[in-house]
Simulated scan of single mutants.
Amino acid sequence: MADNVRFPVPDIVRRRAEVEGLPGRDWLASLDDNLHELEHDWGLTIGQAIAGGSTAFVAEVVDTAGQISVIKVSTPGSAIGRREAEVLTAAGGKGYVQLLRHDPARHAMLLERLGAPLHEFDMPYRDKIDILCGTLLEAWMPVPSGAAYTTGVDKANSLAMAILERWQQLGRPCSQAVLDTALMYCRDRAAAWRPENAVLAHGDPHPANILEVPETDGRRWKFIDPDGLAIEPAYDLGVLLRAWHEGIAGRHAHDIARSHARHLTSRTQVPAEAIWQWGYIERLSTGLHLMELGEMEQGQAFLTVAEALTQPEGH
């Protein structure tokens, strides 16, 4: 690293950029100059990078009036297939962090400053689920016309392909029955997609992607880092269901997991079967992805639950 670099890049962000090849290396080489230019163009003083993300340089900034906000400059590869700025613009601060300024050429966004993420709060996962559901109800909106968002068909088909490929590459770490169930559910969700039933969904609404609104004492929350999908609301709820492992073991594992899906329905009025299917797909996909990244124990935990859910109810 050069001695005159003013904005050191966190190691995890640097590694992500380097994995992206030449575009990522170019991004690293030009980042310091881009941040200097953004300071000038937007009238800001940029602080040092803050922890939390792995695909962007994120730091607090102060403008000439003394107002504090957050700048985010994403790696070029992390922006592919995502419509973060478009979702934030469409939301206008409702359910999502407020987008204050955007420079697409430099993958830069100026965002309102929020508080701590939900995953840092010591509370039962069920309570976090209720916060997430309430904020999703605020955040979901009609799909804007004229934009080519990833659809429910696209998402189901891409997940099916990724699951099959990773299952084979990892040496078939779960049973054929688990794989077949997930692929069946992918076909079901693709067939069920209808544009009139789609919302502009977050795409990855886990507890690290929702932050407390300052000075509201946990009463208001907003999402960050949306992918932006034109998909049924059940997909976002399936993402919540995939990590709800509590109590899912033994003879009644299936019944307990089904009760979790029904709880999500009780909070949102979204049909439980669609939530169940997306949750199962996401659980297997996430487990395989974690194992692919070398997180074998964490990934296996997802697969173990998927195995339990594939058994007949009550067995």
Rank of each mutant, 00 (worst) to 15 (best):
A2R: 14
V5N: 14
F7I: 07
F7D: 04
P8E: 10
D11L: 15
R14D: 03
R16E: 10
E18D: 08
G21N: 09
L22G: 09
R25E: 15
W27Y: 03
A29N: 03
S30G: 12
S30P: 02
L31A: 04
L35D: 07
H40P: 00
D41I: 04
D41H: 08
W42M: 05
W42D: 06
G43K: 07
L44V: 13
L44A: 05
I50C: 00
A51W: 00
S54Y: 13
I71C: 06
S74Q: 12
P76H: 05
P76S: 05
S78P: 00
A79R: 12
I80L: 12
R82F: 10
A85L: 09
L88F: 07
A90K: 12
G92K: 14
G95C: 13
G95E: 10
H102F: 15
P104I: 12
R106M: 10
L111T: 09
R113V: 11
R113S: 15
L114G: 05
L114P: 09
A116D: 04
A116H: 05
L118F: 03
H119Q: 15
F121D: 02
Y125C: 05
Y125Q: 11
D127M: 14
D130K: 15
C133S: 13
C133R: 06
L136M: 15
A139D: 10
W140H: 14
S145G: 05
Y149V: 04
V153P: 05
D154Q: 07
K155C: 02
S158I: 12
M161G: 08
R166V: 04
R172L: 14
P173T: 13
Q176P: 08
V178F: 07
L179H: 00
A182D: 01
M184K: 12
M184G: 01
R189Q: 15
A192P: 09
W193V: 02
R194P: 02
R194G: 04
E196G: 01
A201N: 08
A201S: 13
D204Y: 11
D204M: 07
P205R: 05
N209L: 13
I210H: 03
E212C: 13
V213S: 03
V213I: 13
D217V: 08
R219V: 02
W221M: 06
K222V: 04
D225L: 13
P226L: 11
L229Q: 04
A230E: 09
I231L: 10
V239W: 10
A249Y: 12
R251I: 09
H252R: 14
H252A: 00
A253G: 02
D255G: 00
A257H: 12
R258L: 07
H260V: 03
R262M: 06
H263R: 10
T268P: 02
V270S: 01
A272L: 04
A272E: 13
W276D: 04
Q277R: 15
Q277Y: 04
W278Q: 04
Y280H: 06
Y280W: 05
L284R: 05
S285T: 06
T286E: 06
G287C: 07
L288P: 03
L288W: 03
L288E: 06
M296L: 14
G299R: 06
A301K: 14
L303I: 01
V305I: 08
A306R: 06
E307P: 14
H315W: 00
